[in-house]
Design a protein around this nucleic acid. Sequence first.
DNA 1: TCCCGCACTATTGTATACATAACGTATCCA
DNA 2: TGGATACGTTATGTATACAATAGTGCGGGA
Lengths: 251, 251
Amino acid sequence: MAEREVDRSVSQTVKAQLALRDLILSGGLRPGERISELQAVETTGVSRTPVRMALVRLEEEGLLEAIPSGGFMVKAFSERDILDSIELRGTLEGLAARFAAERGVTARDLEPLKECLAAIDDLLRQVPISVDAFSSYVALNARFHALLTELSRSPPLIRQIDRASALPFASPSGFVMAQSALPEAQQILIIAQDHHRIVIDAIENREGARAEAVMREHARLAVRNLRLALRNRTHLDLLPALSLITSATTI
Amino acid sequence: MAEREVDRSVSQTVKAQLALRDLILSGGLRPGERISELQAVETTGVSRTPVRMALVRLEEEGLLEAIPSGGFMVKAFSERDILDSIELRGTLEGLAARFAAERGVTARDLEPLKECLAAIDDLLRQVPISVDAFSSYVALNARFHALLTELSRSPPLIRQIDRASALPFASPSGFVMAQSALPEAQQILIIAQDHHRIVIDAIENREGARAEAVMREHARLAVRNLRLALRNRTHLDLLPALSLITSATTI
DNA sequence: TCCCGCACTATTGTATACATAACGTATCCA
DNA sequence: TGGATACGTTATGTATACAATAGTGCGGGA
């Protein structure tokens, strides 16, 4: 009864989509469980039409799976699915970096990237890194990746990267927060920032293969972050969509 | 009035989606043109609800673009978009081939691939290749690519490849038919078949990098096919979704 | 003559009523 | 006692009515 702020000036479809996405990611529905439209109507407070629209969009987003006989169920992910999604994102971001390098970018194009780089540098100078700084890092990191993707100047590729990053555990900083309390975290962030610097350098020097390779390796840091967080069992509540993952302990 | 065969046992949504897709790809709507729901209702003969569902799905498919103020318009593609979409598919198929190679496949897994290979060999023995054979090639080629994609055993990757191949000009054999009458066509098909053979060999020997590289190069044959067809101006009517492409003559 | 504003029209967003198909349950028969 | 069938319930698929908003055209004023 407190979130009625967004009632105005936002479509019912979007409202339903947000509410259902939160419900799924927070573990309110079990993987494999059928998601009833009527039940969703009660949960979201909107009528069936926008609920159905939201369900279709969430299916395209990858959170739901269509049931052959009709309707949708919550999708289940294996550990392998997560690792593959991360590798997939890395491959696509690598392609974007290669495009940027091969096609060339102007100094003006790189400006916002370098500002981002400098801002992250500022954050990493703090020892140890505060939780607030971690939160800022997530935002800056997301911005950096978005800017880098756009450097490719390829709408089809940008579109595909957005889709690949839509799954919360595949997004660039999906597992950063989960290990914010660990000492190893700072090291990984420093390495990640080095990758950022290298890819910019490679793009400036039009080294396509190098830019591509470093972005692929960069994505694999997410796997290390994930393993670290799972091994230390700290802040597992910060792991995105943990409830969607079958037997998440064995990664 | 003749296509009423499918009326039974197929949902109105699918019917609308097929009808609208055909309409778009055949050039019935101009790129950038707003696609009115009411107009679509008249065209497809179903009511607004399934039409809206179909429009959302076609947007996700990449054929439509959402208008900020509401509704959808037909998407326009540049030549660069097409080339990028092909490179994108090649990159993803390359990743699938690498996964297959690195993770290993059984002889039984490769059986259908090798049957496909043999069937294509049979086709290519004919000189010159008949139009019917071209048509068979398209089907076999699509099957080969689908089987290869599944060898990755990675649902997230398979899903992404399917989406990347949904655009007609990005699909594996999108431009094969368009140059069926050209003598160079047979050479390209022979080269393509060699790629097929190499990728299977690489996967069998667990050579991930080789498998990936050859699939990337393999996709670039589509670019050659496209250029060939455009330069010779033969069978331009077989070019998929030509009407969606802005200034297609300058590729 | 050009620009601003108002009103109208057309289009999309939303809600709901209806039809149809699927699933579960209970009962009956073997 | 087990299985199959029929019936009832509940789900989704579809159609349509209503509401709200954006786009458009006309008219008046500067």
